[in-house]
Design a protein around this nucleic acid. Structure first.
Lengths: 192, 192, 192, 192
DNA sequence: GAGTAATCGAGACGGTACGTCTAGTCTTTTG
DNA sequence: CAAAAGACTAGACGTACCGTCTCGATTACTC
């Protein structure tokens, strides 16, 4: 006879239900008013089912972020026109997004979660300013002759990511032309 | 006739004792394992005495930061030599500070606290990357002829603050030459 | 020369105000939801003013009972007709009083207070069935030839007081003819 | 299909442990220095486990009394000799019990508890002066020809219960021959 | 009248206990 | 045998009072 494992296998329905409940409650109440009991109740799941698969609240939230349940997919820097205009538009819209009333609470909660769990921090950063994506956009601009070939693309992209990180951390939007000034200050000298 | 207050007056001993206990416990256990009961016990104070004067744990911590009980005094960008070297040294040491093992826990806790309480966020930012201080250092470099007069000093300083914010958020130190590369990428073009 | 005290003298206004507040709150909330803080607040008096003159809540309540602020004056057994009818009427009305919805809570509270403070117990008993008053009424009946001269008046009166005490303690009214039956059982054999 | 419950069942160990701790602490400190926290600590039980099954301290104590953990078994009127002697002995010993130094505190506490909770009151009364038991003893005396057949047994027994109630209320033992006098006054006329 | 001592209302203090909530573990029954 | 339901120990939450102490004002007696 074959040696198959017996008993029920991990319930995918429960798994999904937990992630969805977590995302919903996270959005409603934020990271630190999120409770395991609340998730279990909302997901119609036993608490033990959560503890069986995740060691802590932070890990559940981390998986939510990873699965993209919590954050919209990456913001892609548009390649619609000149690199300067595209970067300004993109930085500006992201700045709006992270400081806007609607998502500010969620972001603050995610930062708090990131302080609990390094994985969340890494994902958060990746979502905000994935360097590889930004570098590709800049490389495209180099190829188009808009940016000098010797520009330190990685460091420029990091400066832009840092600009957003600062907004998230300090919780201040800054002036309306902040994105434009930052692009001109950092990228300006490298424009062809 | 003036409306004189009546009854006993706030005990300065209790006040100090609470702040000290908070700082000690914060350092020991971090923000979210900090409890009001723990503070009260350590400070030999009734819980009500804490609740009488602060609405929440976050406010007590905020006052600790404000009073400088929790964080060392501002990191000053040194004016020891050439601006490039000074900024690299300063950014590097702050990066060390926020990602280093020694202060990482305390720092992460403070960031988490800042997400609870905007006041803490503002103080934290002021301690770490006060733009006005950085701008003054850059202005000094302009005066010394090391930086071009038309350099956008404020935006450069914000890029540096963002660099640190990104480290805080992602909790990654990055490569050893990260500070140097960032300074060269952002400040480099403006060096005289 | 005489050793007279100096300084202000006890405020009679405060004293009265405290007793009144106590009586009001006792009636509203009962003995164990009565608090010193509540009395002080209601009486517009500092807590210390209460503690200066009474050692405990029980003592304040005791003084209220003593002063007749809490309980109506003694119920006098009427001397309206034949001793049997008078005693039945009197016992019945007192039974009504102590078990009736209106005063039951107050009585329960008084019993609870009496368990704290013997003085209250003694007063409570005196109010319910003051033997000397009852004995006088019985003596009057003896003189009128309604009761035999050799009847143990004191013990009979104690039995009647006990009847009431049992109602207070057990919190049950018993049957409607309870008073009549008790009078017949105890006093009946001694009727002339 | 029947609606079966799921999940763990009430822990009998915890239940018993709580009742034992309650009885021990009641005896040590009395009703009003008895605390839920104290019970929980002594019983090595979470507070919530107490609140899950009982709404208040009074109910826990009530169950202790019911289970006989707190009070000795019913005091039975002895049937050792003549009814007069037996009743005097029995009343006397109960009077001793409720006013004696040894049990006075516990007893007063129980009475106070009874004022909180009618259930306790009923149990207390049943333990001390259960009429049916007393009536049976009196009936036995009637059968033995010691008491007249037309004696109002129930009312006589109530007079005796009242005698005890009065002691409990007033907390006074009275004179040494109090029991004897009461028996003679109330039961005397009905002796054959 | 100035000085002194006790009182007053007010309210902060160090504490205890409340009743609720959640954590994380353990137990029972169902599918 | 995993999952749901939910009871378990543990302990923090924020509130209510306790009884004491401190404050500034007031009152009444002494010198």
């Amino acid at each position: 006879m074959n040696e198959r494992r017996r008993g029920a296998v991990r319930s995918e329905a429960a798994h999904r239900s937990i992630l969805e409940a977590t995302a919903a409650l996270f959005a409603e109440k934020g990271y630190d008013h999120l409770t395991i009991e609340g998730i279990a109740a909302r997901a119609h799941v036993g608490k033990q089912t959560i503890y069986r698969w995740w060691p802590s609240k932070a890990e559940v939230v981390a998986e939510c972020v990873l699965e993209g349940v919590l954050l919209p997919d990456q913001f892609m820097p548009p390649a619609a026109g000149h690199i300067r205009d595209d970067m300004i538009a993109w930085l500006g819209s992201l700045m709006e997004f992270v400081t806007g009333e609607e998502h500010a609470g969620l972001f603050r909660s995610l930062v708090a979660a990131a302080m609990d769990n390094a994985e969340i921090g890494r994902m958060l950063r990746a979502k905000l300013g994935d360097e590889s994506v930004m570098v590709r956009r800049l490389q495209h601009a180099v190829d188009a002759g808009e940016v000098r070939a010797d520009a330190p693309l990685f460091d420029v992209s990091e400066a832009f990511a840092g600009f957003l990180a600062l907004r998230v951390l300090s919780r201040e939007r800054g002036e309306s032309d902040a994105a434009e000034r930052m692009v001109d200050a950092v990228l300006g000298p490298y424009l062809a």
